[in-house]
Amino acid sequence: MQFIDLKAQYQALKPEIDANIQSVLNAAQFIGGPYVKELEEALAAFTGRKHCITCANGTDALQIAYMMTGVGAGDAVFCPDMTFISSTEPAKMFGAASIFCDILPDTYCLDPASLERQITAVLAEGIFTPKAVVAVDILGNPCDYDVIAPICEKYGLTLIEDAAQSFGAVYKGKRACSFGRIAITSFFPAKPLGCYGDGGAIFTDDEEEDALCRSLCVHGKGPGGKYDNIRVGINSRLDNLQAAILLPKLKALQERELDRRQTVAGRYNNAFAGKFVTPFVAEGCVSAWAQYALLAEGAAQRDKITAHLTEKGIPNMVYYPTPQHALPVFQNEPRYGEDFKNANDYCARTFSLPMHPYLTESEQDEVIRVVLEGL
């Protein structure tokens, strides 16, 4: 059994993927190319954004978003305490302060009340300038943008949607990647829409930001091309081969894979209700189910169950074992009195089970049986 079965997905999509790969090889057009343009147009249409700019990976997408926002020394960037380091890693790189906020106890996304407390604390201290909020759609579950966006507007902060885990999710009728001034996603192979290597994308509705982003992706190029450098940029491009692979995967995601993820999650929820804290999806929302995470009674029960799963050959993971404020790299970041109660609790109790659209009912039954055995 696979935690995420990319082999099964490939077998289901093999004719289309193989044909596209062969087309790229025949044309020998590897950097840029028609599949990249086609994919960007398809991704923009799917998310409802005006512009999509693909890049080399999701971390680059976040770094470019920070560069577009002008984050630098003396600025403060606000982010949920329970996420992966890439959400605020660029802030550290650019000399800004990462200000972590607690998460909600149900969706595990950014807590708007904690966010506003942290913003007002930074303003009261007067050392850092609040600059941006990175709202992370954790585990595939979208943030509460109807509450977060007005907070950003109130304090003049740029809202960046980190949809690295939520591509395909829905918040009140709108797709992930359609929120914030800038949104990003990742095409890391394990993501809901993943390529066969690294890849990422940035989304915006602004013409000037689209042009700026495309410049930053190619060494700060100007109107004259890559040798007309008008700013400092980076080298971050999605290659034609990865775009060719992503196109049939995007079609499958829309046509059946998102629905299958809902089915698997529903069977898990029914089996584990009352025995664990099962994932919560708010009304009007659809999770992309990048991960299926349960909360055990405590760390001891979690460790007992995961050890039993491993013994029985059932893959499992912990997303994530350590809140950001406790990572060694962030030990010197400023603190403003938050106790991160919900983030600490989540990290101590969480464990994740196999989740993908090709998980058969018999495999699901086996996962359920072994988890319950481990209680």
Score class of each variant (00 low, 15 high):
89 E>K: 07
9 Q>H: 03
83 T>Q: 06
359 L>V: 09
170 V>N: 13
23 S>Q: 13
334 P>S: 08
187 F>D: 09
86 S>A: 15
365 D>Q: 13
318 V>G: 00
203 F>G: 03
294 L>T: 01
142 P>G: 11
178 S>G: 03
130 P>M: 02
296 A>V: 06
247 L>T: 13
14 K>T: 12
98 S>Y: 00
135 A>H: 04
141 N>K: 11
261 R>P: 13
271 A>H: 04
133 V>Q: 05
242 Q>R: 08
52 C>A: 07
51 H>T: 14
203 F>E: 10
7 K>P: 00
37 K>W: 08
101 C>A: 12
13 L>P: 06
230 I>C: 06
290 A>I: 07
116 E>M: 05
147 V>F: 09
253 L>R: 11
117 R>M: 09
6 L>K: 01
49 R>D: 12
71 V>R: 01
340 F>Y: 15
75 D>C: 06
168 G>M: 08
21 I>G: 02
269 N>F: 03
333 E>W: 02
98 S>P: 08
265 A>V: 01
66 Y>T: 15
14 K>V: 07
288 A>N: 05
149 A>C: 01
98 S>G: 05
38 E>F: 03
176 A>Q: 05
353 L>A: 01
328 P>W: 01
296 A>N: 04
39 L>V: 11
84 F>N: 09
163 A>T: 04
205 D>H: 05
93 M>D: 02
260 R>E: 14
294 L>R: 03
347 C>H: 02
321 P>D: 01
233 G>F: 10
285 C>Q: 12
175 R>W: 06
264 V>E: 10
71 V>M: 00
26 N>I: 04
118 Q>N: 10
257 E>K: 02
195 C>L: 06
11 Q>A: 07
290 A>G: 10
228 D>Y: 15
305 I>M: 01
289 W>D: 14
70 G>R: 00
364 Q>T: 15
